[in-house]
């Protein structure tokens, strides 16, 4: 049996839940067709999560590519199809292009080992200064901090996921909120073991009375817990939290059936700090959003 999964017109972190609601009840070995024909826009989160979705399936899925030429072109520029071709059976016309996309700070990039993180850091440093300082009007100090945050979230894949994942970084204008302010977004997605299973693998781990994905996210993100006994572990995400706090940004991490968010001080986002009972999706999906500074 084959099931068609309808992808919403606008694919980002929230609307990706509609995809997972359709996929989660299906057996892993059931063939799925991911239908993006009517997609009009996808955030870095949407694109990286689509790749993680394919990785999570036992049976290679089919991807119907977007019909709109500008969408297909843009996904090509993000290197999405380059990776998708290895994970999906692509159906439809893929518009290839060599033109650079100026809003893209980092195309969809595979992360599976420490060297990949070095590659990402080297690449982003060349592009971040202009994008963050000139386009988003942010203080020059942000460039190094931004790259540090990117490095730490990518390392989570290498250190904890147990399998490879994806990262992408882009600036865009947030039309829904912020009155059209620009944002820069880092998205990292993997289909690995996730936060709960990672903590459960710690030596001597004992489950608390209430123990689920939400608890595991709280322990890790808010209290710096780690599966390693080394007290130096767990600092990466703490550093990322400080970074988003200092720049009025937002950090959200989804793992398993829960999503935790470190919300901005400003009122540009009305997300819940913790959302539970979501449809199950393996691994971890991280999004960091930093808004443009306005006078």
């Amino acid at each position: 049996m084959t099931t068609i999964i309808n992808v919403p017109h606008s694919l980002e972190d929230k609307s990706f839940e509609q995809v997972l609601d359709q996929v989660a009840p299906l057996p892993l070995d059931e063939k799925i067709i991911v239908d993006t024909r009517h997609a009009r826009w996808a955030s870095p989160y949407g694109l990286t999560a689509l790749l993680a979705l394919a990785q999570s399936r036992a049976e290679r899925p089919i991807l119907y590519v977007p019909e709109a030429e500008n969408v297909s072109t843009y996904w090509s520029r993000m290197d999405f199809f380059k990776h998708a071709a290895e994970l999906y059976e692509l159906q439809g016309r893929v518009k290839s292009t060599k033109a650079a996309e100026t809003s893209v700070l980092l195309e969809v990039t595979s992360i599976s080992k420490s060297d990949d993180v070095h590659g990402v850091v080297d690449k982003i440093q060349q592009r971040a200064q202009d994008a963050l300082v000139k386009n988003l009007n942010l203080d020059a100090k942000i460039t190094m901090r931004f790259t540090m945050a990117l490095s730490e979230v990518c390392q989570n894949i290498v250190e904890h996921a147990g399998r490879g994942g994806w990262v992408a970084v882009q600036t865009y204008t947030w039309r829904v909120r912020l009155g059209g302010r620009k944002v820069v977004v880092i998205a990292v997605a993997d289909p690995g073991i996730g936060f709960r299973q990672s903590l459960e693998s710690a030596p001597g781990f004992q489950k608390k009375e209430r123990w689920d994905d939400g608890q595991a996210l709280e322990e890790t993100v808010m209290r710096g817990a780690s599966r390693f006994r080394d007290p130096g572990r767990g600092q990466g995400l703490a550093g990322v939290r400080r970074f988003v706090g200092n720049w009025d940004g937002k950090l959200s991490i989804r793992s398993g059936t829960a999503r935790i968010a470190v919300l901005p001080k400003g009122d540009w986002d009305e997300d819940e700090p913790l959302v539970e009972d979501l449809s199950y999706f393996p691994g971890a999906q991280v999004q960091i959003t930093i808004p443009e500074r306005v006078a």
Partner: peptide, 15 residues
């Protein structure tokens, strides 16, 4: 040194 992230600071400086 260009960038020093938290993981590297922990390994190099703290340890």
């Amino acid at each position: 040194v260009g960038l020093l992230d938290f993981s590297c600071a922990d390994e190099i400086v703290a340890k």
